[in-house]
Design a protein around this nucleic acid. Structure first.
Length: 287
DNA sequence: ACCCAGGTGCTGC
DNA sequence: GCAGCACATGGG
């Protein structure tokens, strides 16, 4: 049971695009999957939650996974009062936490995410878990864990066919193979300096600048990572350059603008990114 | 048929 | 460093 918990809104987190294996159940119930673990969150009120998982897993795993050991109140107060768009995004995104997901799962998930829409990404990952993951039985029904790299390569490169992964099949296979031979444990990865952690990620096939930043932010504990994707570029163009809706700018121009507009939020730039991404995404999908 | 999606790798300059 | 292109697949 979690009481008096502020700045924690499972619904906002579920829709924020940083996690693909989090689902809405009935009546304010959420299912969260990570590796071979599962957490059920029941929202009792705005500040009270029942967390259902194996005994001891909360303190040893889920508390940090949900980033509940961080004080989010300080970040909200630091938003520039002149920046009306960010104020709205921050207000809307209140309750989003930046998760600490496991690294290999985040690598494969965001390799899949490229050139795909979020519902489609979820389906691909589900299919991958069903084919290669460990099966678990529970009162609520059967579910599958996230596959290990060994499992993903166990049927050869062709073993990944038929899951709508397209050209990403090769990326997943190559990255899994490389991870088996030279992958770091999560603890080793987290201990790396920022630049080395990024270079490590970029050395895998299918991981470029944007995906690396997603992994750094959503699984790598780097609160300053700022992924720039098509939505972020459109926000910058529209809200910070006065261009017409839909007009795009180059990624390099976007990175300069990010530094100019959000550089002052050093220490929590990644949270700022999630506020504006989730706000924009809700606008597009009409929530 | 066309355009786009939480881009990356590769080539050529 | 930067532009241009191919790359699967599903959805509008």
């Amino acid at each position: 049971m979690l009481k008096n918990t502020d700045y924690f809104n499972p619904g906002k987190i579920c829709d924020s695009g940083q996690i693909f294996r989090m689902y809405r159940g009935e009546e304010s119930v959420f299912f969260v999957y990570s590796g071979n673990r599962r957490l059920i969150i029941r929202c009792l009120s705005e500040h009270e939650f029942e967390l259902d998982c194996d005994e001891s897993e909360y303190e040893s795993y889920w508390k940090h996974f949900l980033d509940l050991d961080r004080d989010y109140s300080t970040f909200v107060d630091k938003v520039d009062k002149e920046d009306s768009f960010l104020l709205r995004a921050c207000d809307w995104g209140s309750g989003i936490r930046i998760l600490n997901q496991n690294v290999f799962e985040t690598m494969i998930s965001f390799i899949i995410s490229q050139q795909k829409q979020i519902p489609s990404i979820r389906k691909c990952i589900e299919a991958l878990c069903a084919r290669f993951g460990e099966r678990h039985e529970s009162r609520e029904g059967a579910w599958y864990g996230f596959p290990t790299p060994e499992s993903l390569v166990s049927k050869g490169p062709e073993g990944l066919a038929g899951l709508s992964l397209g050209y990403r099949e090769r990326y997943i296979y190559e990255t899994s193979m490389a991870y088996i031979t030279r992958g770091l444990s999560d603890a080793e990865f987290l201990a790396l300096p920022y630049d080395e952690a990024k270079q490590y990620l970029l050395s895998f096939c299918g991981i470029g600048e944007k995906v690396a930043n997603c992994i750094l932010l959503f699984g790598g504990g780097r609160f300053d990572a700022f992924p720039v994707d098509v939505h972020i570029r459109q926000i910058l163009a529209r809200e910070y350059m006065g261009l017409k809706p839909g007009e795009d700018i180059s990624t390099s121009a976007a990175r300069k603008l990010v530094e100019e507009k959000f550089g002052r939020y050093a220490g929590f730039k990644g949270l700022v990114q999630q506020w504006i991404f989730a706000y924009e995404y809700s606008r597009i999908t009409g929530q």
